[in-house]
Structure formats: C-alpha cells, structure tokens
Amino acid sequence: MKRIISIFILILFFSCNKHGQHAHGFYFWKSKLSLKDSEKNILEKSTVTNLYVRFFDVDKIGDKFQPIGVISKSENFSSSKLIVPVIFITNRTFLYIKDSEVDFLAKSIHELIVRKTKELNFRDISEIQIDCDWTAGTKDDYFRFLEKLKGLSHKEITSTLRLHQVKDKSKMGIPPVSKVYLMCYSTSSPLENSDKNSILDIETLKNYLSDVENYPIKKINIALPIYSWGIVTNHLGKHKLINAIAAKDLNHKDLEKISNNEAVVKKDGFFFGYYLNKGFKIKVEQIPEKTLDEAVVFLNQKIPKFNIIYYQLDERFIKNRKFAL
C-alpha cells in the first residue's frame, strides 16, 4: 500500500510540474513599451526568444479603418528579446469589406508596422502576429487579408486562435498560417451572472478543446492568463470591470467581505480609482497556479510540443508567480 501511495505521489508531482517543461515568454499589452526592474528581470529569465508586443489596434469607425493606441517606447527600454509585433483587429473591421479594402488594409497595416519598427529601432523582425476574433461571416476576408499581408511583408504571419474557433473549425475555417497561438482564457463573459471564473474555467476549456489534437495546424503555442480583475455589479445588476484587482485587495476597511473573492461596498467612496456606491458588489477573478498547471496537464495530452506565452507582462500580475525557468 505504501508503495502504491508513493507511486501516486510521484505521478502527481511530475504531472503538476509539466508546467515547467515548456519554454515560456510574455505578451506586452500597453501602449508605451517600458519595463520596470521586476518586469525586465522576469522577462530576461524567460526561455522564449521573443517578446510579443501589441503595436496597435485596428477598428472600423464609420467607413474608415483607424489605427488605435499606436505603440511608443521609453528611452531607457532595452531587452535581449526579439520583438514580435502583435496587431489586434476588431471583427467588425472585416464585416462587409470589399476586396479593394482588404488590399488597402493589408498595405496600410504593413506600412505602419515598418514605420514603427524603424522608428523604435527594433531589429530582426521575422514574425507578425494578427489577433482577431473572426467569425464564420468574416473568415474569408480575414484569411485573404493574412495572405495579402504575408505577400507584402515577406515575414512569417501567425494568428491567434480562440477556443470557439477550434471547437467549430468546420464552420470557422482554418487560417492560412503555419503557426497559431491558442488563447486559453476568456472562457466566458465576465458580464454574465455565473459562478464560473470567466478568465479560465477548466471544464469549459476541456469542452472546447476536446478535439484540439485534430486541428489541421500542428504548430500551436499556448497563451495562458496571469491577469486578474474585479467585476463590479451595481444596484441594477449592471457590470463593469476594474483591471488588476487581486483578492487581497478586498481587505479594505470600507469593504465587507462575503467570501474569499467577493465583497460589498460599505460606504460611498473611491475604490481602485473608481467611485463606487454603498451596496455595490465586487467579485475578483484571478487564476491560481494550480489552475494553470491543470490546464497544462490537459494540453500535454493533446498537443505534442508547445511554448507558453503568458498574458501579460505587468508587475501587478507577475508578483509571486512561479514561472518555468
């Protein structure tokens, strides 16, 4: 019996430590590229050669395509990592788009990437990642855009991949890229009344990815969440998000805790930079290490080899995290 128990403990130990068997890196998702000492230290210890930097968003406002939040850089920024530009494009950008507009969009995005990489003195750009929650109705135009951008840039074009795009691959289509980044977060809407963690619910993840081993693109990297937020609910049941709140932040004299991750505002005032009224409820969502480990153990059974890219590099989210080294 002791031998059986010992073997079980060893299996459990090695299963939980599979998190550390993967090279890991980070997304940087702010409009100004600047690193605090703690962020730079964690980044330089990471084992993926790239830093995935959000360059800008693209949206269609009125009838015009607009870049939003174009990246800038602090003078003292430095890193040994190679920069991978990440461009987030709203799905509505591709709604009812004309062929000529697809060409224009690819050309405009390529030119802005080139201009910013020269301006910010980034070297050896070999990959461009596009982040878009495309749908069945926009897939053809989005895929055509990816091909156009590849032809213009002569770079490796990669795409993010959301959970529903894996589960419904016959309807959602397969992007014309050789490598995708599977976003293992946002498993549900934070604005729904639910007991599930909307950032990452393991059972939901397993349901959506039950057949991921049969996805036609075999080069799959995994994006895992380390961020947190607070979901504030007012008297009318309406919600809003406050970024970067942790459960420990609920230990406030003007908050009454009703569980480990929930509290009620006891009096009107400013909390976390927002004015909240008495009676408002705050629910914190964050991802413990054991949840990330469970996700990786599951994915190890489905995908032969992958890197882990954590979302996102921020001092508030990397504290007390045990990253693979």
Rank of each mutant, 00 (worst) to 15 (best):
P67K: 04
Y96G: 09
K98W: 10
L95K: 13
K64L: 14
D37P: 09
I97Q: 02
V84G: 01
I68K: 06
K32I: 15
R54G: 08
R92V: 14
I42E: 13
F88V: 03
K81S: 04
F28I: 09
P67V: 08
N76D: 12
F65I: 11
F104N: 11
S79L: 11
L43K: 08
E44K: 14
I89D: 01
T47R: 12
K81N: 01
N41P: 05
K73C: 12
K81M: 03
P85W: 05
H110N: 14
F56I: 10
T93V: 13
S72G: 05
S34I: 06
K36H: 09
P85L: 03
K73G: 02
S80P: 04
S80T: 14
H110Y: 15
G62T: 07
S31H: 09
F28H: 08
I71H: 01
I61C: 06
T93E: 00
L95R: 11
L82H: 08
D99R: 13
S74Y: 10
F56M: 09
S78R: 13
N91P: 04
K60Y: 11
H110V: 02
L51W: 05
K32S: 15
D59S: 15
N76L: 05
Y52I: 06
V86C: 08
I68T: 06
S31P: 07
V86F: 04
K32M: 15
L112I: 14
S72A: 03
R54N: 13
V58L: 12
F26G: 00
I42W: 11
S100G: 13
V53Q: 01
K98T: 11
I42D: 07
E39P: 12
F65L: 01
F94P: 01
V86E: 04
S108Q: 10
E111W: 04
K107I: 05
I89G: 00
V102H: 00
G69I: 04
L105T: 03
I113W: 01
S78H: 15
D99L: 09
P67Q: 02
R92M: 08
F56W: 08
T93M: 05
P85K: 08
T47L: 03
L51Y: 06
L112T: 06
N41V: 12
K45S: 13
S80G: 10
F56D: 00
Y96I: 11
T93W: 02
F94T: 06
K98L: 07
I83K: 00
V70G: 08
D37N: 14
S38N: 14
V58P: 02
G62C: 02
L51Q: 06
V84T: 06
E75V: 14
I87F: 02
F55N: 00
K73M: 13
I87E: 00
K60L: 10
I89V: 14
Y96D: 13
N50T: 12
Y52P: 02
P85G: 10
G69T: 07
L95N: 11
S80W: 01
V58A: 03
V70L: 06
E101F: 07
L105V: 06
P85M: 07
K64F: 10
G62F: 04
S31M: 07
S72E: 03
S74W: 03
K45Q: 13
